[in-house]
Amino acid sequence: MNTDSNTDASRPAIQVRGIEKSFKDLHVLRGVDFDVKAGSIFALLGSNGAGKTTVVRILSTLLKADAGTATVSGFDVAAKPNDVRESISLTGQFAAVDEVLTGRENLVLVAKLRHLKNPGAIADELLARFSLTEAGGRRAGTYSGGMRRRLDISMSLIGNPPIIFLDEPTTGLDPQARIEVWQTVKKLAEGGTTVLLTTQYLDEAEQLADRIAILHKGTIIQNGTLAELKQLLPAAKVEYVEKQPSLEDVFLALVGETGETDAAVEPETAGKELR
């Protein structure tokens, strides 16, 4: 392993081989294998308790695996945790913001801890990018769920880490906030960032991911593109079905798709891109 490895496009950004983890008698992971291609969005899909968060915690050096190996950006998570931390950012299940500090202070704090120059300028740029400029001077504790999540994600982008882990990024968010997060994730991947996200929502994986791995009872039971996964079932039959709007379509049509981000650029069209 040398430092060139994180610029080598042919090498997977994340490589997981035979990872096992138990908590006392509970075997959470029983040999997990997968690769994530650099610059792609990879979804780890599974129900509650399937072990998704455990995988993310191992890959982000918060937890040590009992067996198996994992490399992130070419660095072994067990042997080179500091190098891994230099290349990643984690957005956990619960928005990890400091509620006493203002939104801007949260961003400045992270920029300083990443030892960057001009933390103030970085904070202002991100506040503008996530339509939080006006709220930047308020304590994060006063933010709505969607705003907190946006602040949380913007904190993760400081220093442009090449790999981002998003652990259930939309759990507990309302439909508009969810779409905002989806837009952010898409933009990240367009910018070349590798995104590993966990989700229990099938539509989220379907909307976002280049590849989807299904984690069930501690192992990956399927891994492929959406098209590949669909082929696992018998070929599609042609049927005539009256197109009914989903409740989500109705809800969004009634309340508008702009949500809280009135200042976002063309939210109408951006929302439709996802469909």
């Binding site: 230099e86 990643i88 984690l90 299940q93 619960f94 990890a96």
Partner: peptide
């Protein structure tokens, strides 16, 4: 309790 501790631990500090 909040996630901030884990955020710090996953950063190169």
């Amino acid at each position: 309790q909040g996630g901030i501790f884990e955020r710090f631990q996953s950063m190169p500090i």
